[in-house]
Amino acid sequence: MRRVKEPVGTTAGDGEGAFYERLRPLVQLYARSPEIRRVAVVGNQPLEPSRERAAVVDDADLVFRVNGFRADLDGEPPTVGRRTDVVVFNRGVRPTPWFFQDYTERLYLMIEPGRMLWENPKLPAFWPKDLGLVTMPNREVILPLGAAMDADPREIGQWATTGTVMLWLATRLFPEAVIHAMGFSFVDAPEQTAWNHAYGDASAVGAEHGIQRESLLVRGWIDAGVVSYHP
């Protein structure tokens, strides 16, 4: 598959590039291999079983999952794999049975775009006292992603979903790797007004998200070879 150096239509500025240079060595500590060639980025869309898709996840050098994710269990048909190395989440996350599993062996990255307008800076009350996390800066992450979507979150109060932020982080951290993406329902259904999740109840698409913009952006990445998409 053809690889490109940067996500479509973007060039990292000095501050943005320096941020990823600082973050990359930390993320690499949680990979199964010191040389990261394949990265799996798994969204929370319900998917049909697929042994091939599950193998793509579990054979990757690094696996990202998002918010209230689920992973495969013993006795279930393989669907989205078992491994989790990096969890990208927001303050409103509803932990699933998998969220804190083996948490001492994972890296937790928190996004907080709502801090630009209204969000409370407190940690969730359920957060384990012995678990650290790294917050993703809005200036180096959320605002450049907003610009790539042709939107300024500070002006219109819209920003990318946590899943798209996760995918953006993966492509910026490892531009030379093959990025395997799956489980992003807005790619094929940008007009949806509610999310179905692989675990838990459905929920409305928040007014802060313009998933039509996200669909166009991620579709561009797929078409350009930035990511390999596995429906």
Rank of each mutant, 00 (worst) to 15 (best):
H209Y: 05
T193Y: 01
H209F: 01
A189C: 07
I211N: 09
W195H: 11
E214H: 07
E191P: 01
G220F: 02
R219A: 02
T193L: 06
G206F: 00
Y199G: 10
E214S: 05
V205N: 04
A204M: 10
H209P: 00
T193R: 12
V205S: 06
W195V: 07
D201Q: 13
I211F: 04
S203V: 11
G220H: 07
E214G: 09
A194K: 07
S203A: 13
A207L: 05
A189M: 08
V218L: 10
H209I: 01
S203L: 11
G210T: 03
V218D: 09
G210W: 08
T193D: 07
G206A: 08
A189D: 09
R213M: 01
A198V: 13
D201M: 09
A189V: 02
N196Y: 09
D201P: 12
R213I: 02
A189P: 00
A194E: 12
Q212N: 01
D201E: 15
R213L: 11
Q212K: 11
W195S: 02
A207C: 02
A204H: 04
G220E: 08
A189T: 06
A207R: 06
A194Y: 05
A194F: 09
Y199V: 15
L216M: 04
A207E: 14
H197Y: 13
A202I: 00
S215G: 06
G210M: 09
N196D: 14
D201A: 15
I211R: 10
T193I: 07
E191D: 15
Q192H: 09
S203K: 13
P190Y: 04
P190G: 06
W195D: 05
D201L: 15
V205K: 06
A194N: 01
S203G: 07
A202N: 05
P190H: 06
L217S: 03
P190T: 03
A207K: 13
N196R: 15
G220W: 05
P190R: 03
V218T: 05
A202T: 11
S203M: 12
L217F: 00
R219W: 00
P190E: 06
E208I: 05
G200I: 09
Q212I: 00
A198E: 14
P190V: 00
H197I: 03
E191C: 04
Y199N: 11
L216Q: 09
A207G: 12
G206I: 07
A207V: 12
A194Q: 08
H209V: 00
T193M: 06
T193K: 12
S203W: 12
G206S: 13
H197S: 11
P190W: 06
I211Q: 09
N196Q: 14
D201W: 07
H209E: 02
I211Y: 10
T193S: 10
E214C: 02
H197A: 13
I211M: 14
A198H: 15
G220M: 03
L217V: 01
S203I: 10
Y199C: 11
A198T: 14
Q192W: 04
A204S: 12
G200E: 14
A204N: 07
G220Q: 10
V218M: 14
D201G: 14
G220L: 10
L217K: 02
V205P: 04
